[in-house]
């Protein structure tokens, strides 16, 4: 499923809403999560999972083509851990 398919499904399930409102709802949800991570906050969605930010230390990398050493600065990366309920749903038939 893609973002546009998600919007389509939500619009079908909520025929009283305008398509542009559904688009706005979906954007607001993902923008709010992104903004929280940008601030360094955690986003905990019970049953679904939790997003957090992990710090990666600076390191010396290598250009695989030339073999030359390059400095890779420290950076922040988003991390997601699935929630218990969703993990169980994914493994129900297993």
């Amino acid at each position: 499923m893609t973002r546009s398919e998600l919007i389509k499904r939500l619009a079908e399930a909520n025929p009283h809403l305008y398509q542009r409102d559904v688009e706005r709802i979906v954007s607001t949800v993902f923008d709010t999560i992104s903004a929280a991570l940008e601030r360094g906050d955690r986003v905990e969605l019970r049953g679904f999972g939790a997003f957090s930010v992990r710090q990666r230390a600076a390191r010396t990398g290598r250009n695989p083509r030339t073999g030359q050493e390059v400095h890779v600065p420290d950076k922040r990366v988003p991390y997601f851990k699935s929630g218990k309920e969703l993990r169980e749903r994914l493994n129900q038939d297993a």
């Binding site: 909520n14 706005r24 709802i25 607001t28 949800v29 709010t32 999560i33 906050d41």
Partner: peptide, 29 residues
């Protein structure tokens, strides 16, 4: 890192502020 936690309630509040649905419908969406 600030160490605050955002939950479903804050996402619903953002939808309420941005889109103008009721609070309960925002939470449902």
């Amino acid at each position: 890192m600030a160490g605050k936690t955002v939950t479903r309630a804050q996402l619903a509040e953002a939808v309420y502020q941005q889109v103008g649905l009721s609070r309960s419908e925002s939470a449902e969406l």
